[in-house]
Amino acid sequence: MLRYTLHRILMLIPVVVGVALIIFTLLYITPGDPARMALGEDAPAEAVEQFRKNYGLDDPFLIQFSRYIYKGFLQGDFGRSYVTKNPVTVELMNRFPITLRLAFYAVLLGVVMGIPFGIICAVKQYSLFDSVTMVLALIGVAMPNFWLGILLILLFSVHLGWLPPSGFTTFNEMVMPVFTLSGGSLAIITRMTRSSMLEVIKADYIRTARAKGQSEFKIIFRHALPNAMIPVITIIGMQFGTLLGGGILTESVFSIPGVGRLMVESIKMRDYPIVQGGVLYIALVYCFMNLAVDLLYAWVDPRIKAQYR
């Protein structure tokens, strides 16, 4: 297990550098001069020159990229915003907890509701509960989360006036954004749990358990559930990344000051260091999440553990 963990952590390094390279290259080739954008169209030539020098914009690509990696990952300095002149790390750190919390609650909601729903659907296959849940899940998968957010605002803020349409500090403010972001994942986790449970329930060892007179409760939770959870865990890990990205839309629907909104604003103002930093941060968190999921996976599934003895 230790060897596997170490192996996986080392594998993370090329991935992180690769992600940084992709994002850095993308924004490097972007048309438009950030110096002009930051200083305004009619800034004097010397000021533009000075700006380019300060931010090292005239250096060759590889030099710029190596500097970015070196300063970023060894000194925690991802440059400064062109607009506010604050360090990127500071700007992101102010916003990141909100985005992370939003994604975390959304995953949590998906797990806490999705898994029980999936289990009930599988156990009572073709019942009314199953059919209704599956229709809702079908719509949930097809629904863009920003539209779900708009509909919730329409119903609960505009018509009923129960919940505030924006913000993310009090519980009331959090209900709609978390549900909005969670919608698709909830549907996917429910469907995955259901189909995985159905498959496991058909297995021979479940029939054996029934034959020896095991109680139905024990069959479902002791025998079937642990095996049925393996694909569900993978899905949950993948959902976390989707939700970190999808948070960008939810944040802009509910005017939540998270990394997503910051990035959308920064893209419009061509504030590249912020955009780069934001994408990198989210990708990093996603990588660590995946690592955690894979380790959990190895811990749950002895077959993987056995490979790394």
Partner: peptide, 8 residues
């Protein structure tokens, strides 16, 4: 793949 699709 380690960059969320929509983010990329």
């Amino acid at each position: 793949l380690s960059i969320p699709t929509i983010l990329l």
